[in-house]
Design a protein around this nucleic acid. Structure first.
Lengths: 216, 216, 216, 216
DNA sequence: GATGAATGAGCATTCATTCAT
DNA sequence: GATGAATGAATGCTCATTCAT
């Protein structure tokens, strides 16, 4: 767990003893909880410290500032997503790919479900992350770095099935798929339209399948 | 950060004299400029007033708070977009639709270009709007209301060409297309990937065409 | 109706035409209403003007500032009280005073009821006036001037019945009675104790009667 | 003027270290001084902080707002009064009550002198408290609570001498006596009449004695 | 190492009053 | 005379961050 990715001039303490590591984890946990419940801007260092039952000063000895905790949380969440996606990929590829269309559907389903389940768990926090990534260069950079890892997984997957995939630009396709899935899940989770989720998911699946796979 | 949760209906002055209308316009213009250049959170009422060469109090006699100007700006921008889209739709539909595939490509192109051109004009501000829509319920609501108008235009368009459109759920399709286009234009404009725009646009067009139109 | 008693450097307009007088009355009426409902400090010139359906500038052409309207209102209220007290006195003194004890009780009753009925009508506003008289020298002065008139009426009354009155220092007695009645009515009206009003009024009457009149 | 309606329980720091306790005391002391010298409304948090030689933020970490310090000061002053009254009561009751009329006079004197001496010490501040109790529900409540304690002391005293007291409703009598004394002391201290204090005090004593004690 | 007291720049907002039209 | 647009000083309050103990 590399210390504070982008910023941190020189000050934040890197805990080495068990007690220090636990304290840091308590802080991250409390921050995650508060950012999720109240939003990044509505949460302050005082509240995080109080919630973690440490002094304000202790917070600032582990993190140079509020954004640093947020950065650490982002890394953690994206790590979770790619770990789960990777796990599924590995499980799927062991099986013998027989019916390409079904596989493609599985891929679509996989992306959709994976992203959706993460949103279900963290949707409020992801909203904050997306917003912050739009507003803050540093957060944007971290988000991109972490998303790159998921895109690489998608590319890997397309290469595995490359003879059945309609498109040849895997890199662009992976980016499009990820972003499309992200955005759509957002629509679904936050009910920003009046449309039922079932209808929406069906159309999304169609769009991804038609894009990726030839008509059979 | 205690901002009035509901847009207070009680106070904002509706200018009656010519001078008042001009002042309000000056304020909106300055606010737009500053939100674009420095971002919503980095701009305060004081700076907007100063930039519009009016007193702080004048700002607060036209708007109850910063968010209200922002809301007004959003509405204005989205109105511009839908007006332009509508204009194009009307121009297109006059022509005799002969080749459906070409028409569909036109539709895709239209959506992409329209959205892209708006992003070109306002991309920094739109970034702020997207972020705020994620962070703030009221802004989210406004955004959704204004997007609904554009979605209605897309549905209208699909109905015009309904015998050639592959999908039947126009409502879901319109939402997906709009969001997809928005998100993609975002990727293109802000180069958040290292992929060249030409490649990306090609894939996007493919995705939309394959989704909407049968293989010819 | 003398213009703005204490302050007013030189500016407030003294209306001479019917229209001007009506406008001023509308302003005073609206101010009275607002001061009563929301309190002096919670009311501003804007609201008074709006409630009187005149422009802010118009308010300031009739009154130099907010305190001036308040002063005018005070004078008006106290004038009402002393007019009513005077009227009662005149009515009573025409009758032949036979039984002094009963007369004294009548006096007590009169003071209590008169003050109480005014409080009933204006208690919220009187609260404001009392508070302002404590906080502001100018308002204090006006209040004292107006109370002096009522005290004079009380003295006059005691002189009328002087052979039956136990005390000889009418001036001090009148002040004490007025203040006592005021304070007690305050207790009654605002229920600041849990004691029933009937019990309280009985004790007050006893206190005044025993003070003023010999045991019969 | 949007002040927290209920005393926000959420934020005010309760000092744990010696330094914190001293700082809070410094703030209360400075606030008392300024409220007395300039009045509550003429004093702001900034000035209190400056006078206590702490930062504005320090003030707000000990008190949620100006009213809260005021409340604390009120409680302190009233506590002082009732403690002194209680002390006197205890001292008096040790002596054998021989002459009831004298005792009653003592009681009157006691009430008058006690209240008067407090007024002498704090009269400017008490003026502010009275005014605020008229203008503000919360302050009114605090004042009433604290006065209840003094009333209870008066009732206790009357019960001690109950066979000599003319009235039987001790509760109502105690309230009347307290309020009467308060109001009269106010008259005396602030010379709101032109009458000499000696004359006024004599009449007040008469009124209290005649009310409480049978004619001897 | 941990604590929590202290800081003070910063911001949103109000309102009595003036003045150009 | 009346209007309402404009002013800007003033105020209450927040919070990221520092630092003495």
């Amino acid at each position: 767990m590399k210390e504070a990715t982008v910023f941190s001039p020189n000050k934040a303490r890197i805990p080495k003893q068990k007690r220090g590591i636990e304290t840091k984890e308590k802080i991250v946990k409390s921050a995650t909880k508060l950012f999720t419940e109240k939003g990044y801007h509505q949460t302050n260092a005082q509240q995080i410290a109080a919630s973690a039952k440490v002094a304000k000063g202790t917070f600032y000895s582990y993190f140079n500032n509020k954004k640093e905790v947020f950065a650490e949380i982002i890394e953690c969440i994206f790590r979770n997503i790619s770990e789960k996606v990777l796990l599924n990929f590995e499980l799927k590829t062991y099986k013998n790919p027989a019916d390409t269309y079904k596989e493609a559907k599985n891929l679509a389903q996989l992306i959709i479900n994976q992203t959706l389940s993460e949103y279900k768990l963290n949707h409020k926090l992801l909203k904050q992350i997306l917003a912050m990534a739009l507003l803050d260069k540093e957060i944007e950079k971290i988000r991109r770095q972490e998303e790159k890892k998921i895109i690489n997984l998608l590319i890997l997957y397309m290469q595995t099935y490359k003879e059945h995939i309609r498109t040849s630009d895997f890199e662009a396709a992976a980016l499009i798929l990820l972003k499309f899935a992200e955005e759509m899940m957002h629509q679904i989770k936050f009910k920003s339209s009046g449309i039922e989720n079932k209808r929406l998911i069906k159309e999304i699946e169609d769009m991804i399948c038609r894009y990726l796979l030839p008509e059979n």
